[in-house]
Structure formats: structure tokens, C-alpha cells
Amino acid sequence: MRRFDGLTALVTGGGSGIGAAVVRRLADEGARVAVVDRDSEQARAVSTELGGLGLALTADVREEAAVARAVADAVGHFGGVDVAVNAAGYGAAAEVVDMTLEQWRGVMDVDLSGVFLSTKHQARQMLRQGRGGVIVNIASTNAEQPAEGLAAYCAAKAGVVMFTQVAALELAAHGIRVVGVGPGLTETPATAALLQTSGALAAYLDNIAAGRPAQVAEIAGLVAYLASPEAAYISGETVYIDGGLRARSYPTLRQRRGEAYAGSAFLRGQA
């Protein structure tokens, strides 16, 4: 048997990047998968690859009603939810003195509140079913590793790690495991522009012991393991997969932006 034969999974942010790779991996191992994304076309494209194992759902994780509806639609179509993976994420780069409240809230609403709302309604469904389940929240190495210009993102991902621990404590008695995955630099559509910035890739690779970014399939493999019975004794933990990035230092803002970096807009009198 494949590890997820007969089970239903729901993946937020499943239309691209890490989320799409997770969808494909879980389906390859037998799961029926509800692909949830705010981009309906991307959700449909990934779901179509799965044939009868896929269901495309459109939802913005910032909106509780939309999240609750997505869970309900997955249950209506497949009969339940056994595994949930919260991969929807968003990043905005700005130094603290330049960052607007709108930018801060934008990241927090997706990366932290979105994980909270998704976990809340996924866990409610698992409690109704009474047969346990697994929720995997995608964090980041930036939960532990500070990065200039990424105050909101780092704070949100650190929040995901602690939220995962608390949810795991609350749900353990009901047979529901909650775990986190913390990827390092990974090749996705979201990081494509960064990796094309002059000097940025070299700066990262100098600090990654493995000497390369992660591939989305590698992140999906870890998610699949943690969601499987093989990881039955793992709960509340965030497992990092970063090629050794946390063992070294994180590239500076100047290194990441290259020649385009002119310093804080506030200090230059432009904010």
C-alpha cells in the first residue's frame, strides 16, 4: 500500500511552488487531494493533473468564511479530511523604518493568520470525524534566522512555529498531530526574481553547506513523511530542511539586492 491510500488531503497554496509539489507527492502516494488556492486557474491546472484524485477549490486564506467553505467543499466531495498542509504564503521586503502598516498586515494576514484560520477549520473537521489526522504548517528557516528587510516575514514564520506547538498540545488528546516544516532557500516561482538578482544567488550559496537551493520535491518529501504513520511520534516540532543554511549566516540585504540596493528610503529622505 502507498502511505495515503484511501485518505483525503487538503493543501492551501496548492496551485504553485511548494504547495503544488506537496499536492503531487500526496497524490502519487494515493491521497485524494483538495487543491486550495486563491488563483482558481492555478488550482484547476494542478488538480487536473490528478484526474479523479483532485479537486480544485478557490479560497483566500485571509478570509475565514472562504477557509471554512473550502474545508466543507472538500468534505462534501471526498467525505472527510485526514491530512491538511498549509503552504499558502506571501512575502514583502521592506526595512522596518520604511515598512507600511499595510505591508506588515499583508504578510501577517496570509502567513500567520492564514495558518491559524486554516488549522482552526481543518482541526474542527478532524474532531467531527473522530479518527484523528495530521496538520502540517509550512514555516521557514526565517522563523529562527533573522534577515534584514524581512521583519514581517520573520515574525510571521516564528509565529507559525509557536502556533504549531500550541495547536499540537491542544489537539494531541484527540489523535491529531500538528507539525511544521521550515524550508530554506527553495527554487519556486516566488524566489525566481531573487535568484536572478546579481550576486544574490552567490551570496546564498556561500552560506548553504549543500551548495545549492532546495527543490520543491525535496520539501514535499519531508511533508509526506511527517504526514505519514511513520512519523506518528512527531508532534509540535518544526523540522527544518535547509541544506545547512541555519548553521551559517543569512545573506545581508545589500547582498540579496545587489546594485539595486540604495539603502533605507527613510534615511535617504524619500519616506
Rank of each mutant, 00 (worst) to 15 (best):
R254H: 12
E148R: 09
G243A: 12
E102T: 15
L50P: 07
V71H: 04
A70H: 03
D111R: 09
V33W: 05
F266S: 10
T100P: 15
G184C: 07
T191K: 06
L253G: 11
G76S: 13
A88E: 11
V223E: 05
P146G: 04
L150W: 12
E259L: 11
M99Y: 10
P251G: 06
T191W: 05
R177W: 01
E102A: 15
N142M: 13
H77W: 06
G91K: 10
Y225T: 04
V134H: 02
A193V: 12
G13A: 06
L267K: 12
V33T: 08
E64N: 11
A70L: 02
E218C: 04
A232D: 03
V67R: 05
T12N: 04
Y250I: 10
V67L: 14
G149P: 10
V75D: 02
A31Q: 07
I18A: 00
G244V: 03
A214I: 07
R24N: 12
A209T: 14
A123Q: 09
G132M: 02
G54D: 08
V161Y: 01
Y240Q: 01
Q125G: 03
V216Q: 08
L253I: 10
D73M: 13
P251A: 03
T12G: 01
Q122P: 11
N86E: 07
V33L: 05
G91C: 14
L101W: 12
D73Y: 06
V46E: 07
